[in-house]
């Protein structure tokens, strides 16, 4: 369990940087097909912003934005988004993740449908990765520990 840090500098800098890091992560996710990055990288940066917030402002303030329960739900939604888009393509008569077939229900050209499908899949991957990383972070940092435990591990 991390308490709120009593370090003024790290707290203030984290407070200034975290919103920008989140927007940057969303940019990496949304522009995955023009520039490097995509779902996985964006999800990792999102999770990193939550880790920074948790380390500097304590776990309570982080839980107010992303609790363990919410992380579980969000990771499920992410996987559902990924699998759902793939299965939808199967239903519409293509291969798994054959985005061009999505054009039938979205009423756009196959090229645009491909772009939108990739975007949807990337958002799903980012949500899943972010939620799972947050779960890991919570699991590591809320574990009961004492100094003796550290010594025995080492």
């Amino acid at each position: 369990m991390i308490q709120e840090s009593d370090d003024v500098i790290v707290k203030a800098v984290a407070r200034l940087l975290v919103p920008f890091i989140v927007v940057y992560a969303l940019y990496v996710v949304m522009h995955g097909h023009y520039s490097p990055g995509g779902g996985f990288q964006g999800g990792v940066i999102l999770a990193a912003s939550f880790v920074l917030l948790g380390v500097s402002h304590g776990l309570e303030k982080t839980r107010r934005r992303m609790s363990e329960k919410a992380a579980r739900v969000v990771s499920s939604i992410g996987v559902l988004l990924y699998g759902g888009i793939g299965a939808l393509c199967l239903i519409l008569g293509g291969n798994y993740l054959d985005y061009a077939k999505l054009g039938k229900i979205l009423r756009v050209t196959p090229a645009e449908a491909r772009s939108l499908g990739i975007l949807g899949v990337e958002i799903g991957v980012a949500l899943a990765v972010m939620a799972v990383m947050c779960t890991v972070f919570f699991a590591i940092f809320t574990a009961e520990e004492s100094p003796e435990d550290y010594r025995s591990v080492e």
Partner: peptide, 28 residues
């Protein structure tokens, strides 16, 4: 960051920024 000013990307940007601002409004 984006450098694309068409309607689709601007809408995406507004959605993302509003979501982030809703989550982190008390920090900045």
């Amino acid at each position: 960051l984006s450098g694309k000013f068409d309607a689709f990307h601007l809408t995406l940007g507004v959605i993302c920024c509003a979501l982030t601002a809703y989550l982190f409004h008390d920090l900045l």
